[in-house]
């Protein structure tokens, strides 16, 4: 044995010609090669659990691995979760118990179910199912069934009424489908297709390394037709965050503020995954707003989605009512 195993309570070391095996609740046992096999068998489910994370998932330090561990409430190495409550994690036997029935976790409007595979080539192999939160109790036969992660793009494209969804994290994902039997890698790919980069940003935040760009930084960086957005009055930025970024409009939790140390008054929301910078829709809306601010007499031809149009109309109403003070 060249290196030491230390995963989820299973410890195995080669020391002075003997193997030292330890599992939670049992004292370390010194074993020779002949005794090791039996001891490993007795150490289930720790061994199959180690094999799954080591051989199937791998990717130590990656967001993919952290997310898959989060999915089954396994402890995540170097979790910091700056400023947010630590996630309640579970021991291996407890997880196995729950994984037999399927352990569910929510991610925006998605629900991930992690299951142990009954007839897998090795014990401990997991697969993942994914469905819409509204379909958790639905009869599986009534749902469209997919196995290719790329199908998620098509589902995410339009809402239930067929309207285009340029903001992927808008809470308008249509129900009626399920992905079943995904591998961990496929699950991450599918979630990324529904909610791009949310896993990577969640992982960065968890490590305390989320690179947030606040409003002023992003606005100042713009060029071309968006050059003007940094002129937007501060109240209007607050208003935009309130109309575009709140949980009823977007499932990302807004981590950006007006500037570093200068928070907007609008609440950030409770989303599972953070928003690290004003998105292109907010920048586009800001541009329309800046134009309206600077020259209300001019005529504009706007190209807007229904949602943008609704937001802009509300914005105009607010100005008319002098609510922005």
């Amino acid at each position: 044995m060249e290196r030491k195993i230390d995963v989820d309570g299973l410890r195995l070391e080669h020391e002075d010609g003997a193997y030292v095996l330890e599992t939670p609740g049992d004292d370390p046992a010194r074993l020779d090669e002949a005794a090791l096999d039996d001891a490993l068998e007795a150490a289930e489910p720790y061994v199959s659990n180690w094999y799954y994370w080591e051989a199937t998932v791998g990717g130590e330090g990656t967001a993919r691995r952290a997310f898959l561990r989060w999915c089954e409430r396994a402890p995540i190495v170097d979790a910091q979760r700056a400023g947010r409550a630590a996630d309640a994690t579970r021991s291996v036997p407890d997880r196995y118990q729950r994984l037999r029935d399927g352990l569910e976790r929510g991610w925006g409007q998605l629900v991930v179910t992690t299951r142990l595979v009954d007839d897998a080539p090795f014990d401990g192999e997991r697969v993942y199912d994914l469905c819409h939160v509204d379909d958790v109790d639905a009869d599986a036969a009534a749902l469209e069934r997919y196995t290719d992660p790329r199908e998620a793009r098509k589902i995410a494209r339009a809402d239930e009424d067929g309207r285009y969804r340029p903001l992927k994290t808008a809470p308008t994902l249509r129900p009626g489908w399920t992905f079943t039997g995904l591998s961990g890698e496929q699950l991450v790919e599918t979630v990324d297709a529904f909610y791009p980069a949310t896993i990577a940003n969640w992982d960065r935040e968890r490590r305390g390394e989320l690179d947030v760009d606040h409003w002023l930084e992003t606005a100042t960086r713009q060029t071309g037709i968006y050059d003007v957005v940094d002129e937007l009055p501060r109240e209007a930025v607050d208003w935009m965050a309130e109309s575009c970024c709140v949980d009823s409009q977007c499932l990302r939790r807004r981590a950006w503020q007006y500037a570093d140390g200068d928070d907007l008054s609008t609440p950030s929301g409770d989303g599972q995954f953070p928003c690290r910078e004003p998105c292109s829709l907010v920048i586009a809306a800001a541009r329309e707003w800046t134009d309206l601010e600077s020259d209300p007499e001019r005529r504009y031809e706007l190209e807007l989605t229904e949602r943008e149009l609704a937001q802009l109309s509300a914005l105009i109403d607010a100005v008319a009512d002098d609510r922005l003070g």
Binding site: P166, P196, A197, N201
Partner: peptide, 16 residues
């Protein structure tokens, strides 16, 4: 993308 997600800004962070 410039006008869709994933945005250019976040193009690299999901890659291993």
């Amino acid at each position: 993308f410039w006008k869709e997600e994933p945005h250019f800004r976040e193009a690299f962070r999901s890659l291993e």
